[in-house]
Amino acid sequence: MQAWNYPRWIAHRGAGKLAPENTLAAFRLGASHGYRMFECDAKLSSDGVVFLMHDATLDRTTNGSGVGGERPWHELSQLDAGDWHSRAYAGEPLATLENLARYCRANACLLNIEIKPTPGVEQPTGEVVAREARRLWAGADVPPLLTSFRPEALQGAMQAAPELPRGLLVDTLWDGWFDIARQLQCVAVVANHALWDAATVAQVHGAGMRCLSYTVNDDWAAQRLLALGTDGIITDRVDLFAPD
């Protein structure tokens, strides 16, 4: 198994639910709780800017509406991505991957970039995110980990920047998941935490890959994963778990 340079504890979307997800305010808050690694969601604007957002549509986490990937960045950059969460964050803008890369590199933070493509542009999104990650982390000691539920996105990332580490996200153990992870030369499988058991951990570790879990918000679940010997825990509860 290759060396693993990432911490065990990873803050989900910056600070979980304590701040507006995927905004710089959230990453700053997560860092204030001692977290050194974050997970974020990355997709493309209509003019090819990599920006941070989980949903395909703007409605839940901004004051905009419609499909985010169908809007150019100059429009997306004007949206309020904080007021939906609380008045304290009103006016918080959407972040680009470049914004977050500057913050992470200045503060020695590591990143798990989930490639979250707008439906229909999976492979191109993987390609652009990987190229942008290669540029933004050029010369970094530890590159970002690129993950996705969509194998096509990981295929695009592998073609564009094969040296960047990849991980397959799975919410179920669908037929062929293990073979796909190996074909994509993944360094990790990132699974719904309930999917891990001793046999599955042994299978993934036996192939030289690491076992990561999402989204772990209860102490009993974290203790189970630690006992199984898994390698990474993604959590919303930056206020509950003290990262090691």
Results as ranks from 00 to 15, higher is better:
183 Q>M: 14
32 S>I: 00
241 F>P: 14
103 Y>K: 01
128 V>R: 08
216 V>S: 05
168 L>C: 10
41 D>M: 08
2 Q>S: 13
97 L>F: 11
215 T>P: 12
25 A>S: 11
70 E>T: 07
4 W>N: 13
147 T>W: 01
134 R>A: 14
41 D>E: 03
12 H>S: 10
50 V>S: 07
203 Q>R: 09
150 R>C: 13
97 L>K: 01
48 G>H: 12
61 T>W: 02
80 D>E: 12
67 V>F: 04
140 A>E: 10
30 G>M: 00
224 R>W: 05
175 D>Q: 15
212 L>V: 06
167 G>H: 02
153 A>M: 09
166 R>D: 09
235 T>H: 09
122 E>L: 06
173 L>H: 12
35 Y>N: 05
23 T>W: 00
147 T>E: 06
57 T>K: 10
112 N>E: 08
122 E>F: 00
166 R>P: 13
174 W>F: 15
36 R>E: 07
243 P>G: 08
22 N>F: 03
74 H>P: 14
79 L>A: 06
14 G>H: 01
138 A>G: 04
2 Q>T: 14
86 S>E: 07
32 S>K: 02
207 A>Q: 12
28 R>T: 04
142 V>P: 10
164 L>K: 04
46 S>D: 11
160 A>C: 14
73 W>Y: 11
52 L>M: 08
225 L>Y: 01
94 L>Q: 00
97 L>C: 09
189 V>P: 08
236 D>M: 04
193 H>G: 11
115 I>Q: 02
82 G>D: 11
152 E>H: 05
220 W>L: 09
97 L>H: 08
59 D>T: 10
170 V>S: 08
158 M>W: 09
240 L>H: 08
3 A>I: 07
63 N>Q: 03
140 A>N: 10
13 R>I: 06
209 M>W: 01
113 I>L: 10
217 N>Y: 01
169 L>S: 04
63 N>L: 03
110 L>R: 03
37 M>P: 02
22 N>M: 03
240 L>A: 13
226 L>C: 06
217 N>G: 10
116 K>F: 03
17 K>Q: 14
148 S>K: 00
133 A>P: 14
64 G>P: 14
197 D>N: 15
30 G>C: 04
26 A>C: 11
71 R>A: 09
5 N>M: 07
95 A>W: 01
84 W>L: 07
78 Q>Y: 03
44 L>F: 04
208 G>C: 13
159 Q>C: 10
55 D>K: 01
149 F>W: 04
173 L>C: 15
201 V>G: 08
64 G>I: 01
146 L>I: 03
1 M>T: 15
202 A>W: 05
9 W>Y: 13
34 G>R: 02
99 N>R: 06
222 A>Q: 07
72 P>Q: 01
191 A>V: 00
81 A>S: 15
89 Y>Q: 07
206 G>D: 13
181 A>L: 02
128 V>F: 05
111 L>Q: 05
84 W>T: 13
214 Y>M: 02
222 A>H: 02
70 E>A: 12
215 T>E: 05
116 K>Y: 02
92 E>V: 11
205 H>I: 07
156 G>W: 01
51 F>Q: 04
108 A>E: 12
117 P>Y: 00
140 A>C: 08
159 Q>M: 12
170 V>I: 15
215 T>R: 07
184 L>A: 10
124 P>L: 00
73 W>D: 11
65 S>F: 06
168 L>D: 07
242 A>C: 10
